[in-house]
Amino acid sequence: MNTSIGAPAEASVVAGVQFAIAAYAQALDADRTDDIAALFLPDGVAEIAGVATFEGREAIREGYAAFAPARPQLHLTANTVITSWTEDEATAVSNLAFFQRGESGWAVQLVGRYDDTLRRQDGTWRFQRRITTFLP
């Protein structure tokens, strides 16, 4: 497993990991809980630090349904670094900013980071574990 932050991951690993991360943000903002759950392995874990931990696709689907957006929202994910990888497993860290649209327009509601472990299954990268941490 390569763990050197200075060495870029293989292009196929980068593309697969970045697709999963972007697809998650798009599904979250569109309230597509089935799509969010499908981005995780069947035994995957979604942890929102200090809020909740959902284990398995059904729990993830149900858990995210409770967070249905009340108004338009946007998750921006940036500065993703793949911190270790093999052909079929990768870890990554990303920054996030969460915006909601209110009467005055779009405003940042919170910032945080994602710590991810992903595995390639049947050619598709899926989350084994995603930890969301909000920063003060």
Rank of each mutant, 00 (worst) to 15 (best):
V13Q: 06
R32N: 12
A38S: 14
D34Q: 13
V17D: 07
R101E: 13
A9M: 11
T124G: 00
D116P: 13
R113V: 03
D35S: 13
A20I: 02
A25I: 04
D43H: 12
L74N: 06
W106T: 06
D115A: 13
A22G: 12
Q73Y: 01
A20M: 02
F54H: 15
W106A: 03
A90E: 07
T77G: 06
A25P: 01
T33Y: 11
V111D: 02
T91N: 11
V17S: 08
M1L: 12
V13S: 06
A90V: 11
G6H: 15
D29N: 07
G102R: 04
A92N: 05
A78H: 09
V108L: 15
E103C: 00
R32G: 00
D35P: 10
D31N: 15
G105N: 05
F40A: 01
V17W: 12
A22W: 01
E47P: 06
I48Q: 07
S104H: 11
E58S: 14
G123F: 05
A27E: 04
F99N: 00
I82T: 09
A22Y: 00
Y24P: 02
A7F: 13
E58H: 13
T53A: 13
F99T: 00
W85A: 15
S104I: 02
S84M: 04
E47S: 12
A70R: 08
L74C: 13
D122I: 03
N79V: 03
R101K: 13
P8F: 07
L41R: 10
F67L: 15
Q26W: 07
P8Q: 10
V13D: 07
T91D: 11
R129M: 02
F54G: 04
T133A: 15
R129F: 03
P8E: 08
Q18S: 09
R119E: 10
T91P: 01
V45T: 15
N79S: 12
A11F: 09
A27V: 06
G50D: 10
R130P: 01
E10P: 14
L41I: 02
G44D: 11
G112A: 09
I48M: 08
V45P: 01
E103T: 09
G44K: 07
Q73A: 14
D34K: 09
F99M: 04
V111G: 12
I36T: 03
S12Y: 03
A22Q: 10
V51L: 11
S94C: 13
T86K: 08
L96I: 10
S104T: 12
L118M: 09
T33E: 12
D122E: 14
F54C: 04
D115L: 10
T80V: 14
V108K: 12
A27S: 15
